[in-house]
């Protein structure tokens, strides 16, 4: 049974109309975070995305939320989302069962500058669930390894039990020309890695700042101090990119909720060059 086939074809759909996708699997990442694999109708443009973009996921009768795509952009048959259950809609999303239907709109928003980063090293700085929208960029680099110089993934989490994609992360660290370092705010006795904020990892990074593109996603406070620190360490501000979070209700610039200064985070972002964000990031309650 494929109800998804009854969804109007993309060309006839309004931008506000979701396509019905089948939930293929749900995997528990941590105590509160789950990764969902969705199967959209074959060949539907909803599945064609660039690293850093997001979709709107919809549970009828419950609501709709922007969720970053966290899977491999070159695997078109499935769309992967890593969702932290923190509210009603996210709870409903992560408690769906395989075979259930979830509505998807998208993909929306700007992408990580994968093309512009070719020939350079890429420094990924992720905090918490912020690793999810960066994972497609990592997959892209690993698939096109020759196009990029070094890959460094720095990841800060609350505690060891909150870290995402642990096995995969450890594997990245084993690859040539690749560093993957994780740090947590609070470690327990069994944690043998770094403890401290993510910027404390910068001293361990081996790369040429001028030839490096940084991609940041995490809590805004973390991105503020991390981008300042990266600039201090010599990465040109136009080579620092941030993925911003605001209340996005429509994803297409109609609802007005996600405005941040002159930008609509949904359509002008979520990925912005630091040069665009810098004048606004430090303004309180903008």
């Amino acid at each position: 049974m494929s109800l998804a086939l009854e969804t109007p074809a993309a060309a006839e759909r309004s931008v506000m109309e979701p396509v019905a996708a089948r939930l293929a699997s749900v995997a528990k990442e941590t105590h509160d975070t789950f990764t969902l694999n969705l199967e959209p109708p074959e060949g539907d443009p909803v599945a064609v995305f660039q690293p850093g973009q997001f979709s709107m996921l919809y549970v009828p009768g419950v609501g709709e939320l922007p969720i970053s795509i966290s899977g491999d952009p070159e695997r078109r048959e499935q769309l992967t989302y890593t969702i932290r259950s923190v509210g009603q809609v996210t709870y409903q999303l992560v408690t769906r069962r395989p075979g259930d239907t979830i509505g998807i709109r998208g993909p929306f928003g700007t992408a990580w500058p994968m093309k512009e980063s070719r020939g350079k090293s890429v420094l990924i700085v992720a905090g918490g669930i912020g690793l999810a929208p960066l994972r497609p960029a990592i997959y892209h680099i690993l698939r096109h390894r020759g196009d990029y110089n070094r890959l460094v993934v720095l990841y800060g989490g609350r505690s060891p039990r909150d870290l995402l994609y642990k096995k995969e992360f450890a594997a990245w660290g084993m690859l040539p020309d690749t560093q993957a370092l994780a740090t947590v705010d609070y470690g327990g006795v069994s944690w043998r890695g770094y403890v401290g904020v993510v910027t404390t990892l910068f001293r361990h990074v081996r790369m040429q700042p001028k030839e490096t593109v940084a991609m940041l996603c995490g809590p805004e406070i973390m991105m503020r101090y991390a981008s300042r620190e990266l600039e201090t360490r010599g990465i040109p501000p136009e080579q620092i990119h941030l993925s911003m979070e605001r209340n996005m209700k429509c994803a297409v610039g109609f609802c007005g909720h996600c405005q941040m200064g002159p930008y609509f985070v949904c359509k002008d972002g979520p990925v912005f060059p630091y040069t665009s964000m810098k004048p606004y990031m430090d303004l309180y309650e903008l």
Partner: peptide
């Protein structure tokens, strides 16, 4: 001290600091 302040803010928690 700065790091400690950030940790105290608990920015990664569900309440986002």
């Amino acid at each position: 001290l700065r790091s400690t302040r950030m940790q105290v803010l608990d920015v990664y928690s569900a309440r986002g600091g």
